[in-house]
């Protein structure tokens, strides 16, 4: 079994699953019906990506585990998502800022992953890129509307940016898995992803009349399985039935 490949797939899948779970919390509670539907679309895309990736991870591992075993039976310490995606939804502005900061990473990430030597990963990246292109457009447009909307919306989304900023640098700090995957030609060069991200963030914040926060102390640990307190609650809810009634079909 290729351990680097497996770890790399899980790292990508966990980001999509956890962000998708967060976004799915909006379903039925969105600010207006149209945005409720749009957010649910994003959640569906992200959880769909996670499913493709977990299915592939299970195949690579070859131990007979399934996509659901990987999602429902790993503990928080085994999850490898970045801290950004597990942050709470907050208000609509917080959700949009978190989405934008992640989409501006996710888009160039998948674009680069399309060149992976691993054909399955490249194919998943190609399919996902179509979805993420839409996510980035959606979150960029809302960053602009909220930033350049009313004083209240400007302040709300600006504060959300300040709050989330410390979680952004982790996206680009390569984990051991990132480095090995890059060496093997299956992974992505995060420094290139970072260039795109910087340009995109500068471009959109400028149009949105928002200030780019100063880089201060940055949080990290997600890629090593050292998470914030939030992930435990996400998993507790998600895994509740599988843990309460082990080994059942649902």
């Amino acid at each position: 079994m290729n351990q680097t490949l497996l770890n790399y797939i899980l790292q990508i899948a966990d980001n999509s699953l956890i962000l998708g779970s967060r976004i799915s919390e909006w379903c039925g509670h969105g600010p207006v019906l149209e945005q409720d539907i749009a957010l649910t679309n994003i959640a569906l895309d992200l959880i769909g990506q996670a499913r493709s990736l977990f299915q592939y991870a299970a195949e690579v591992e070859g131990q007979g585990r399934t996509e659901d075993d990987l999602a429902y039976l790993r503990i928080a310490r085994e999850y490898r998502n970045v801290l950004l995606v597990e942050q709470p939804n907050g208000h609509f502005g917080t959700t949009i800022a978190r989405q934008f900061l992640f989409d501006a990473y996710h888009y160039p990430f998948y674009k680069a992953l399309m060149n992976s030597k691993d054909e399955t990963l490249a194919a998943i990246a190609e399919k996902s890129l179509k979805e993420v292109t839409y996510h980035l457009r959606f979150s960029s447009e809302w960053m602009i509307r909220l930033g350049d909307g009313t004083d209240e919306s400007h302040e709300k989304v600006q504060n959300a940016l300040y709050d989330l900023w410390p979680y952004t640098s982790e996206l680009f700090v390569p984990s051991e898995t990132d480095n090995s995957a890059l060496e093997m030609g299956i992974g992505v060069d995060l420094s290139e992803v970072k260039n795109f991200w910087n340009e995109k963030v500068d471009e959109i914040l400028k149009i949105a009349t928002l200030e780019k926060p100063q880089d201060g102390w940055m949080q990290s640990g997600g890629k090593q399985g050292k998470h914030s307190e939030h992930l435990g609650f996400i998993l507790a809810e998600m895994q509740y039935l599988q843990r309460t009634y082990p080994g059942q079909e649902w």
Binding site: H29, P31, V32, F92, R145, L146, G149, T150, E152, K156
Partner: peptide, 16 residues
């Protein structure tokens, strides 16, 4: 609650 918390979002979209 959804309507009340969504009001500022609607206002922002209209203002923009």
């Amino acid at each position: 609650k959804a309507a009340a918390e969504g009001q500022w979002v609607k206002d922002a979209a209209i203002a923009y």
